[in-house]
């Protein structure tokens, strides 16, 4: 069971449907590891069900039921195939597997990596919606991410291995969450590489001389 969870507000926004796609991808992926957060989301969805019963009903047009009934006749008897479920023993949780196109066989073999500094890579794959973006972050055993600060929120979900920062240690399924303008640096455990889903809302600003170079060439 994970020890570090998304903030309660994030689970709430996810259940209410107001959370945007990129952050929702991280929350849905965390749920694959966390029975406790799944239960909380189910409770908040039950709240949505109660509110749906309470909403001021709006009469629908007279022909709407007939229009739907006519479509039932055309509706395929068999359901359209469900989106891909990752194979057992894969390292990618289902929502992330599908976001990557469902072609990875649950592993990371098909992911292209761009080296940022020695030991630190970002995936060529990314998902950007509005001001938010997601990609994968790979840290070699013992590698550390250069110190950086950022102007908006940043989150990491651990997919393999583990890392530590100023605030704690994060294992598979854990979520690390950083408020704007919180300098932090993650260091992967020494005994193996660590891959995370990285979600952020704005481009980061690296600090220091190395940061000056990184800011010119990379989003991170």
């Amino acid at each position: 069971m994970p020890a570090h969870h998304p903030a309660p507000e994030l689970l709430f926004d996810y259940a209410a449907g107001s959370l945007r796609e990129v952050q929702a991808l991280l929350v849905a992926s965390h749920l694959a590891y966390c029975a406790e957060c799944r239960r909380r989301v189910a409770e908040l969805e039950a709240c949505g069900g109660v509110l749906l019963e309470e909403v001021a009903a709006e009469p629908v047009s007279d022909g709407l039921l007939d229009a739907v009934l006519a479509k039932l006749a055309d509706a395929p008897a068999a359901l359209p195939p469900q989106p891909a479920t990752p194979p057992p023993n894969g390292i990618l949780p289902g929502p992330l597997h599908r976001a990557l196109g469902g072609s990875m066989g649950g592993a990371l073999d098909g992911v292209d990596w761009v080296r940022i500094v020695p030991g630190i890579h970002l995936s060529g794959w990314s998902l950007g919606v509005g001001t938010a973006s997601a990609c994968l972050l790979r840290m070699a055993a013992g590698a550390s991410v250069p110190a950086h600060r950022h102007t908006d929120h940043e989150m990491l979900l651990v997919l393999t291995g583990a890392f530590s920062d100023e605030f704690g240690r994060y294992r598979v399924g854990d979520v690390a969450s950083y408020d704007p303008d919180t300098p932090h640096h993650a260091v992967a455990d020494r005994d193996g590489e660590c891959v995370c889903l990285l979600v952020q809302d704005k481009p980061l600003v690296f600090t220091g001389a190395l940061g000056w170079l990184l800011n010119r060439g990379f989003r991170f």
Partner: peptide, 30 residues
């Protein structure tokens, strides 16, 4: 009502906001 709420929420996100809704499926548990 809860089950239909989740369908309405997700279909609204797809249709009106035109984003995908990342969802956990029953077989997704790690």
């Amino acid at each position: 009502a809860t089950w239909i709420y989740t369908i309405a929420r997700n279909r609204r996100i797809d249709r009106i906001r035109q984003e995908r809704r990342p969802e956990l499926h029953p077989d997704d548990s790690m």
